[in-house]
């Protein structure tokens, strides 16, 4: 099966129903995408498929074979992604950091689709869980980013 990951086509050897998360982590060796719950509950495994955030732990790899997958490893190659990372650093968002790949990708997807989201739009998009409770810092970073 062929996958497009971070702009590169890669051949992968995995059963069609393998969750994309495990193909990314184990076949492609990209471990920035995290396993948290495996049940679409936490968002740690978020990647972008054609620019949309998806929970890769429940997405069969065959379902995204024709889509461009973006993982955290290429985030700074994207100008919006780079801005998000900068804001994350400025607001010192990460604590343990485990959820942050998913947070940064979700933020990037939102801002690429809507450069100046309202507070309500931010709240509707930024729904990933963070057990360290970095939510205030994420909100502050997002508010700054939403000013464009």
């Amino acid at each position: 099966m062929e996958l497009t990951i971070n702009g590169t086509k890669r051949q992968v050897d995995a059963a069609a129903d393998t969750p994309l998360l495990w193909v990314i982590r184990e076949e492609l060796g990209l471990t920035g995408t995290k396993y948290g719950c495996g049940a679409a509950q936490c968002g740690a495994c978020t990647v972008l498929a054609d620019g949309h955030p998806i929970r890769s732990c429940v997405m069969p790899v065959s379902a995204v074979a024709n889509q461009a997958i973006t993982t955290i490893e290429s985030i700074e190659e994207d100008p919006v992604g780079k801005r998000v990372v900068e804001a994350w650093i400025e607001h010192q968002v990460p604590q343990c950091g485990y959820c942050q790949s998913g947070q940064v990708l979700t933020a990037t997807a939102l801002l690429k689709q809507n450069a100046k989201p309202s507070e309500a739009e931010i709240a509707a998009a930024m729904i990933n869980l963070c057990r360290c409770g970095t939510y205030n810092a994420i909100a502050d970073a997002m508010q700054q980013l939403a000013k464009g």
Partner: peptide, 17 residues
């Protein structure tokens, strides 16, 4: 500033998993 903010914002930190 925290030493690990960039690595943790870009998925670079290696956890045990």
């Amino acid at each position: 500033p925290r030493l690990d903010a960039h690595d943790k914002s870009t998925g670079k930190v290696k956890y045990n998993i």
